[in-house]
Simulated scan of single mutants.
Amino acid sequence: KNTYWEYDKIPKELLAIGYRWEDDQWKLEPMLHDGSYGAMGGLITSIEDFSKYVSFHLSAWPPRSDAENGPVQRSTLREMHTPQFSSLNAEATDFNEKPCASVSGYGYGLGIHTNCKGLKLVRHGGALPGFGSNYVFYPDYGVGIMAFGNLTYTAPWPLKKIEKLLFESLDLAPRKLPVSVILKERQQQVSQLIQSWSPDLEEELLAENFYMDKSREHRMAEAKEIFDKAGTVLSTNEIKPENQLRGSFSIKAENGVINIFFTLTPEKEAKLQQLYLSFEPSES
């Protein structure tokens, strides 16, 4: 509602005028009309309107199978957030100015940075005579920050102080990845499989390469040994997804916990291709 192509269409009370600092005084910078150098594309907007753009980028995360509601698919946005050419900055520091190497790269029009602690941010900044602006968002946290300034080439924020506030003082928690429908369905089948080894279930569930890693006989023997140690099964916990085709869950039993990790194939009908079991006995 407050976005324009031409500055002379903007109500005067809403238009920020650009300045430069020169000869110990503020000097007006000429405004540029829509064109090659007008806001490097000509679009003039407000923080409130621009926040909708940043929110749209954040809506692409975490990856999921919900209905699409934007002009481009979420997968297209995530391509924009994927570095095409990466480089290592071994001398980078974190928001406490402590050594923390980072990997940076350029996606489709956006810079992507991931530091030694796994904190990922996507950003872009820009400036022209009279103005400077920056925005950054953190896909894993659903948080975006935007700042506009009306001073030539200004960097309008103390970003590391803001990061310290967000990720240390406030101790924000990452967003949780939703469980995909197929992952939930396969979890139930995997739980049945490792207790019954039903041929009909195997036919429906297993990928063609499943027994190439370990034979059926060895898998059955491994599972039987674990369930014999575990004793009576009491309950099955919710799955913790790593992505839409991979996750882990546990089965609570009389004598401890059975941990299960599995991966599905990237097919239209995703099948079980990787499975690991382990037993964690109760403390006596």
Rank of each mutant, 00 (worst) to 15 (best):
F227E: 01
G42H: 06
G231Y: 04
E225H: 12
P158G: 02
D24M: 10
E97I: 13
Q195W: 05
C100A: 15
F279Y: 13
R246K: 15
V257Y: 01
A127L: 03
G18H: 10
A207E: 02
I44E: 03
S248R: 10
E267Q: 13
H113C: 00
L205C: 05
K184T: 10
V54C: 01
D171W: 05
E254N: 11
K252V: 13
L245T: 11
G256R: 03
K229T: 14
R20W: 09
L277N: 04
Y53T: 02
A207L: 04
P174L: 04
N259C: 10
A16D: 04
Y153N: 02
G107T: 06
N255A: 06
G125L: 10
M40Q: 13
V136D: 04
V122I: 13
S133Y: 13
R216D: 05
N255Q: 09
A16S: 14
Y4H: 04
L177F: 01
I194G: 07
L28P: 04
Y153C: 03
L170E: 01
R219T: 07
E168G: 00
P241K: 13
G144I: 03
A127M: 02
Q25Y: 06
K268M: 10
R20S: 10
L234W: 05
F137L: 00
D213T: 15
P99G: 11
F167V: 00
A155D: 11
E204Q: 12
A67D: 07
Q73T: 13
L272I: 07
W197M: 01
N150P: 02
A221G: 11
S102M: 09
I182E: 03
E254M: 14
S282Y: 01
G38F: 09
H33I: 08
K240Q: 13
T114Y: 00
Q25K: 15
V54D: 00
S248E: 15
S278W: 11
K160D: 05
K12F: 06
E267A: 15
S65M: 12
Q274R: 15
E97L: 05
N96E: 09
A147H: 11
D23R: 11
W26S: 09
K117I: 08
S75L: 07
N259M: 08
F131V: 07
V190G: 08
S36N: 14
N89C: 00
P178R: 13
P199C: 05
E29Y: 01
E238Y: 03
S55F: 08
V122G: 02
E168R: 00
G118A: 05
A155T: 09
F56E: 03
Q244M: 13
S198N: 15
L277S: 01
I112M: 04
K214I: 15
C116E: 03
N259E: 11
K252S: 14
L58V: 01
